[in-house]
Design a protein around this nucleic acid. Structure first.
Lengths: 107, 107
DNA sequence: GCCTTAATTGGCTATTTGGCAAAATAGAAG
DNA sequence: CTTCTATTTTGCCAAATAGCCAATTAAGGC
């Protein structure tokens, strides 16, 4: 028995969770400039191609990106442009974190 | 051996990860109106008090919230007000998700 | 048809996370 | 100093996640 509210927070969390990974953030940022093929994204993040593909499928399922196959390649692009805008806020959190003398390596 | 860039994305991801949980989102939203004690937050999310405390410590470590003990109670408040602003964007993602006919229960 | 390149999927393991319960800590009040 | 209440910490277990490798699928070129 799941309350209506629970579902709302779960949905939101599912989107945020799909962003909550270094490689995925890096890919999202790279996609800000326009669509990229998987092979290009792989060069950018430097992980195994299967790992990159899995990350992309997570973000696709969350609605962050969409894909299109053209020839041999699959191109991914951001689905909602504002996605990266909120990183400014994340930076603000990080700044307030270091400003108050906390170690920067708290990862 | 960690590249400088890696660290940047890891730091960002650590902040986002701290938001990526239904209960934590609910608490952040509740804190938008002002500080609340742990006991109140527990009433809101309905989990075990130890679970709530752990969630709060995760968000505190990430720099999302700060705490202050007054008497027997510990009050938590948002550290960076913009934190909730980005939820609008998350909602946009969710809308685009349902708009394109995807099942809403993709949690 | 066969080979090559691009990407996804499945299988496996290691690590992290979430949640409850029990124990520990901290402050207030008697 | 004992007790009560609020919170945190610890221990444990189940579930989810991340990453690599191998196998598979898909599209093109020959």
């Amino acid at each position: 028995m799941v309350r209506r509210d629970d579902m709302r927070y779960r949905l939101r969390a599912s989107v945020i969770k799909a962003m909550a990974h270094p490689s995925r953030l890096q890919m999202l940022e790279a996609l800000e400039a326009g669509e990229l093929c998987v092979c290009e994204l792989q060069r950018i993040v430097g992980s195994d191609i299967s790992t990159v593909s899995k990350h992309l499928s997570v973000m696709k399922a969350a609605g962050l990106v969409e894909d299109e196959k053209r020839g041999l390649q699959v191109f991914y692009r951001l689905r909602v442009p504002c996605v990266l805008g909120f990183l400014e806020c994340v930076e603000a959190v990080l700044e307030s974190r270091t400003a108050s003398g906390e170690v920067a390596c708290l990862v």
